[in-house]
Computed example of a mutant assay.
Amino acid sequence: MTSPPPVGAYVVDSGTGRVGRVLGLGGPYVRLAPFGGGREWDCALGELRLATAAERLSAATAYANARSRGEVP
C-alpha cells in the first residue's frame, strides 16, 4: 500500500496475515487493533493492503467463535 489507509479501515498485515482496524498513523508505521479488540500492533505501511469483504467476515467469525468458547471477554 503506498498511501496511508484511513483511520477505521480494515487492512491485512501481509507479514502476519492478520486482519486489523487502523487506529492511527505514526511515521512509516500504522497502528492496528485486531477485530473485536485486543493487543494492538504496529505494521509498516508497505506491508498493508485493504481487507476484502471475505477477510473481514472471516475475522468477525473467528472473533465470535472465540467469544462463544469463553476465550475472549
Rank of each mutant, 00 (worst) to 15 (best):
residue 26 G to V: 02
residue 47 E to L: 09
residue 16 T to V: 04
residue 3 S to N: 10
residue 14 S to W: 00
residue 26 G to M: 06
residue 39 R to I: 06
residue 9 A to L: 03
residue 6 P to A: 15
residue 23 L to A: 08
residue 29 Y to R: 12
residue 12 V to L: 07
residue 49 R to I: 09
residue 64 A to Y: 01
residue 2 T to I: 09
residue 51 A to T: 08
residue 1 M to P: 00
residue 12 V to Y: 01
residue 31 R to W: 04
residue 37 G to I: 07
residue 71 E to G: 02
residue 27 G to I: 05
residue 54 A to C: 01
residue 47 E to F: 01
residue 61 T to E: 13
residue 68 S to V: 00
residue 56 R to N: 04
residue 35 F to E: 15
residue 72 V to D: 04
residue 42 D to L: 15
residue 13 D to G: 04
residue 50 L to C: 03
residue 52 T to V: 08
residue 35 F to Y: 13
residue 72 V to F: 09
residue 1 M to G: 13
residue 2 T to N: 13
residue 12 V to K: 02
residue 57 L to R: 15
residue 54 A to K: 12
residue 32 L to T: 05
residue 3 S to F: 08
residue 4 P to I: 06
residue 16 T to Y: 02
residue 35 F to M: 14
residue 10 Y to L: 14
residue 9 A to D: 11
residue 22 V to H: 04
residue 37 G to D: 12
residue 57 L to M: 11
residue 63 Y to G: 02
residue 34 P to R: 10
residue 61 T to D: 07
residue 56 R to H: 01
residue 54 A to G: 06
residue 34 P to K: 10
residue 25 L to M: 07
residue 5 P to M: 08
residue 41 W to A: 10
residue 4 P to C: 03
residue 71 E to K: 09
residue 33 A to S: 14
residue 66 A to S: 12
residue 51 A to S: 13
residue 13 D to C: 05
residue 36 G to D: 12
residue 56 R to G: 06
residue 32 L to Y: 03
residue 9 A to V: 01
residue 51 A to W: 08
residue 15 G to T: 07
residue 72 V to W: 07
residue 24 G to A: 15
residue 15 G to W: 00
residue 8 G to R: 03
residue 61 T to G: 02
residue 13 D to P: 00
residue 44 A to Q: 11
residue 39 R to E: 15
residue 69 R to D: 06
residue 42 D to V: 05
residue 4 P to S: 05
residue 7 V to Q: 08
residue 30 V to T: 13
residue 57 L to A: 15
residue 7 V to A: 09
residue 20 G to M: 04
residue 21 R to D: 00
residue 55 E to F: 08
residue 43 C to I: 05
residue 14 S to P: 00
residue 56 R to I: 15
residue 46 G to Q: 10
residue 15 G to D: 11
residue 15 G to M: 03
residue 28 P to K: 09
residue 16 T to S: 15
residue 73 P to A: 15
residue 9 A to H: 02
residue 50 L to H: 11
residue 39 R to D: 14
residue 66 A to F: 01
residue 3 S to I: 09
residue 28 P to N: 07
residue 21 R to L: 06
residue 8 G to V: 02
residue 64 A to G: 04
residue 58 S to H: 12
residue 25 L to V: 02
residue 46 G to H: 07
residue 44 A to D: 11
residue 31 R to H: 10
residue 69 R to M: 10
residue 44 A to I: 06
residue 13 D to Y: 01
residue 25 L to T: 02
residue 38 G to M: 12
residue 57 L to E: 15
residue 10 Y to T: 06
residue 48 L to N: 07
residue 48 L to T: 08
residue 29 Y to E: 12
residue 36 G to M: 12
residue 51 A to H: 09
residue 11 V to W: 04
residue 62 A to I: 01
residue 30 V to G: 04
residue 34 P to W: 06
residue 51 A to C: 11
residue 18 R to S: 07
residue 21 R to A: 12
residue 20 G to S: 04
residue 49 R to G: 10
residue 53 A to Y: 01
residue 49 R to Y: 08
residue 71 E to Y: 09
residue 68 S to K: 10
residue 50 L to Q: 09
residue 42 D to S: 14
residue 18 R to F: 02
residue 57 L to P: 00
residue 3 S to W: 03
residue 15 G to L: 09
residue 45 L to S: 07
